[in-house]
Amino acid sequence: MTLAPAIEVHDLVVGYDALNAVRGVSFTLPRGGRMGLVGESGSGKSMTALALMGLSPTGWHAAGQVLHDGVDLITETDTSFSKRRGRTISMVFQDPMSSLNPVRRVGDQIADVIHRHSKVSRREAMKQALDLMVQMNMPRPEQLARSYPHQISGGQKQRIMIAMALACYPQLIIADEPTTALDVTVQKQVLRLLNAAARDRNTALLMITHDLPVIAAMCDTVAVMYAGRIVEHGPVQEVFRSPRHHYTRGLLDSQPTMDNIALDGSSRLGSIPGMVPPLHNLPTGCAFHPRCAAASEKCRAEMPELGANGAACWHPVKEKAE
């Protein structure tokens, strides 16, 4: 028998008062699947993630359907949702510097998660925490476990965060730009660890990032968000090789590669003209039309839905001839 997906999102809307930062997002992530969520700042990626965790900021509302582990998370009460967070669904945040409790030893912070969700003793929880730290490639875990967050490096802190997220073998980990705050040299190690650990546990991964190469290396599918909607969704190879939405195309063109960076200063690095529209002043029709070269009257009037080609666009980019 096939397992239910790790998460199934239908028409998720997240907003504040009458303003919606996420406007009808749907996707399904199978068990052990890896999905990348990309988009500029303000496109609604992080708000989507927080809504899936039931941790939208105070005053924000979330509607739609989020099926996970046989329940609709949108309608869960805080108490019963709390029994899931960290156990069946967990999250790694962007900034490890500020995401750990500054007055508690890091080993205890991992053990707390284990102790909270399983019936094991404090001592057993600590033993498991040390095991996790070993899996996270942390040398001398006993000594490190007794450190406070301010005593260890950013990379180590993020490993602790990942260990906390993995501790209870969740079905899904949401990683919201887990390496943005880290040194470039450390980024790769941390991603590799997260990747391997998730694979070992058959944990699904929802990877939120600006970093397209990371998605290419780690994910099966990618969803591109713009102004609160998914504008293109498909297998990573397909989307990256042959984007159908003009926004995706623009994002890919603005990535530096060996081809478009010239050392003599005559760079041909692309950029998307204009800016992400503010929530209170979204364009009519396709929200991307003011920045799109291919925009027509229809784009201004009607909002396109995701089509069979995986893009929400009236005039999709022509498929690249192989």
């Binding site: 709390s82 029994k83 967070r85 945040f93 500020s98 995401s99 409790n101 969700h117 906390m164």
Partner: peptide, 11 residues
């Protein structure tokens, strides 16, 4: 952020 982390781990 660390309070959000506490919430995300089940508090």
């Amino acid at each position: 952020d660390y309070v959000r982390t506490a919430r995300a781990t089940g508090m």
